[in-house]
Amino acid sequence: MRGYVKVFVFLVVIMATVLSGCKTQPTEQAKPAVGGKLTVLCTPQEDWCVALTQKFQADTGIETNYVRLSSGESVARLRAGKDNPEFDVWFGGPADGYMVAKNEGLLEPYVSPNAAVIPDALKDKDGYWTGIYVGALGFCSNKKVLDSLGLPVPTSWQDLLDPKYKGQIAMAHPATSGTAFTAFWTVVTLNNYDIDAAFTYYKSLHNNILQYTKTGSAPGPMAGRGEIATAIIFSHDCVKYQEEGMTDLVISFPKEGTGYEIGGVGIVKGAKNPDAAKLWIDYVLTAKTQELAATVKSFQLPTNPDAKVPEKSVKLADVKLVDYNFTKSAEAKKGITERFDAEIAPAPKE
């Protein structure tokens, strides 16, 4: 019997510790304390999310929590929580996703005083989202693997269709990842907005794809480890992996032209902590905050003209960019991702 008293005490102690732990969260949430709390939906690389939320919390005293989700997943989550949102602010990820969210009424407009310095091309005219970084899409290849396959570094979208690449290319799934959608829309743009032509291209490319990942940047480390020859990812992510020690990686760009992203930030409609959310936006638009990215090896180009451009960053002037129309892409996004998911991603390879 004494054994059972011990068990009971043990369980009670565990339950008590645990309950005391979880009780603090809901009660604090219930308090409408000004600037007490902030929940960020964070789309860039995880280490940037960590660095930024911790710095923000330290500087403002606002208890800041985040969940990292890819762009497509983020919109899906915001849609799911439309009536009772769990997030206050969405940070990072291509503007296409923000345009979709804006069109679906998932965002709240806010023009930060700090947004004045941001060029007009890099923010929504109605203030639903503001650009925080820019980066170009590229090919991130493992030189050693390319050599062993007898392939040159790819410099064109057509290069990737070479049968020698069979099972040697990876990209993310456009339904979950904004990176992959940017890649898709780039090909649409190159074909004069002919979506069917882009599908034809990705159907052929499908034969060379090893795996569609969940997160946009994920193919980068696959290339870095020699699992594949080429990853279709944002070039700044490739720089990050090079800097982190994946030294076989080389960056190249398609000569036809490549897409780019404007990473956005916006307030979630019906946010529980709107004041903290506004403060967050003011905060991330400052030059000082944007310079933080490079400290965690995120080499996107800052949108604030006063922020120092990291030496390692890929300069847009060196790359041929397509005329990426974020309004058009947002309108077509849902149809494209659904069609991609139905027709391409699960299809067997030839």
């Binding site: 989700l69 497509g72 997943e73 899906a76 989550r77 849609r79 799911a80 799934h173 339904a175 979950t176 969940k214 991702t337 659904e338 998911d341 991603a345």
Partner: peptide
């Protein structure tokens, strides 16, 4: 998983 996380 893709149906839920990608499109909800």
């Amino acid at each position: 998983y893709i149906a839920i996380s990608g499109e909800y």
